[in-house]
Design a protein around this nucleic acid. Structure first.
Lengths: 187, 187
DNA sequence: TGTACATCAGTGAACGCGCGTTCACTGATGTAC
DNA sequence: TGTACATCAGTGAACGCGCGTTCACTGATGTAC
C-alpha cells in the first residue's frame, strides 16, 4: 500500500487542487474531506498523513487558488484587459475555478488568521499591480486600484447572488464599462 | 405550555430577528437551529411550528435583513451620505447587523432560488435608488449605480477578508473616496 | 358569565446522518549491511 | 548486487459529535354551549 515519496508528493498536490476547486464551489463547510480525498483518488483516512487539519487544508487551498489567479492576472498590462478577463459570464458561472475572493469572500472573513493570510498577500499584490496601471499621483493610484478591485469582486458577488440571469449579465456589463476606465477625469 | 396567538406571532418575529443576525455573523451552516431558537428564548423542538425547514428560515431571514438595510439606505438623498454610512469601520466589524449581501454574498450564491429572491429584489431597488442620485443620461446612471453598489459590497468583503486592520481601513477609506463621487467626469 | 372540551404553541427526548478525526493494519518503498 | 528489516503512504473501519428533523406529550388558550 505504501506509495513512493514522489507519488505521495503528487497526492498532496492533487488533494490541494481538488480542495481549491471544491471549497470555491461549495464553500468550506459544503466540501467534506471524504469527497475531496475521493476527488484526489484516495480514501479519506489518508488525509491526516498530508495535513494537520481541515483548516490547514483550507488555508493552503485558498493560497493555491489565489496564487493561480495572481499568475493569470499579473500578465495583463492594461486595466481594460484585466477587467474584461475578470468580469465574464464564464467566470461568473464557473465558481470552482475562478477568483477565490469572490467565491469565498464572506466565508474567508469568518475563518482563522491562517486562512486569511493568503488573501491579504494576494490583495496587496493586486493593489500594487493595478496602481501601476493607473495614471495620477501615487496616493490616487492606490485609491483607484483598491476601488477597482472592490468593484470587480463586488460585481461578481452580486451577479452570482442574484436570481435573474439578465440582471446578473447587466451587473457584469455595467461594471466592465465603468471599471475598464477608472477615473476618466484623470486620463 | 400553549402560548397565545399573539405570543406565538411574537416568537416567530424573534426567531427571524435572531436568525437574521446569526446567519450574517456565522453563515448559514455556522448558525444552528438550536442556538437560534435559544436566542429567541425557545427550545429547538418548537422550530417546525413556525417554519417548514431551515432553508425557509434562511430565505425569510435574509429578506428581513435586506429589508432593514433597504429602509436605512432609502433615507439618503445623496450618494456621499449613503457611501459614508455603508463604508464605516463599525459596519466592517459588525457583520451581524450589517449588509446581508456583504455578510453572506458568496453563501447566497450557493443557496436555492428561494433564498436568492430577496437579494434580487433588494439589488433592483438599490440600483433604482442610486441611479436617481447620479447625474448623466439614464443608461449611464444605471451603470454608475451598479458599479457603485458593486464597489460598496466588494470593499466591505475585501476589508473583512483581510488579516491586517490597517489594510482593511485603507480599503474602506479608498472606496469611500472613490465611490462618494462616482464618475467625476460627468459632474 | 361559567363550564367543558378541543386546539395547538412549546417542550424535551430521540432519530438518522454526515462530518472531522483517530487508529490498527497492510504491503510496497527505502535503507543498511 | 542481493537480502533483511524498518519505514510509512494509504486503507477501511470506527469514534464522538452536532446537525436538521420528528414526535409524543403538556397545559394554557381559544371555542362552543
Amino acid at each position: 500500500m505504501r506509495a513512493s515519496r514522489q507519488k505521495a508528493a503528487e497526492s498532496r498536490e492533487r488533494i490541494l487542487d481538488v480542495a481549491a476547486r471544491l471549497f470555491r464551489e461549495k464553500g468550506f463547510g459544503g466540501a467534506g474531506l471524504e469527497v475531496i480525498m475521493q476527488g484526489a483518488g484516495l480514501t479519506h483516512g489518508g488525509f491526516y498523513g498530508h495535513f494537520q487539519s481541515k483548516e490547514q487544508l483550507a488555508a493552503e487551498a485558498v493560497a493555491r487558488a489565489l496564487q493561480r489567479s495572481g499568475e493569470r492576472q499579473s500578465r495583463f498590462t492594461s486595466i481594460g484587459e484585466l477587467v474584461a478577463d475578470y468580469l465574464t459570464q464564464r467566470h461568473c458561472e464557473d465558481r470552482a475555478n475562478g477568483c477565490a475572493l469572490a467565491a469565498l469572500g464572506a466565508d474567508i472573513a469568518r475563518q482563522s488568521d491562517e486562512v486569511r493570510r493568503a488573501p491579504t498577500l494576494y490583495l496587496r499584490q493586486r493593489i500594487d499591480q493595478i496602481a501601476a496601471l493607473v495614471r495620477g499621483e501615487p496616493a490616487k493610484q492606490r485609491q483607484q486600484a483598491i476601488a477597482t478591485l472592490a468593484g470587480l469582486v463586488g460585481a461578481l458577488t452580486l451577479a452570482r447572488a442574484v436570481d435573474d440571469p439578465a440582471l446578473a449579465a447587466e451587473v457584469l456589463e455595467a461594471a466592465r464599462e465603468v471599471f475598464s476606465k477608472p477615473d476618466p477625469a484623470l486620463n
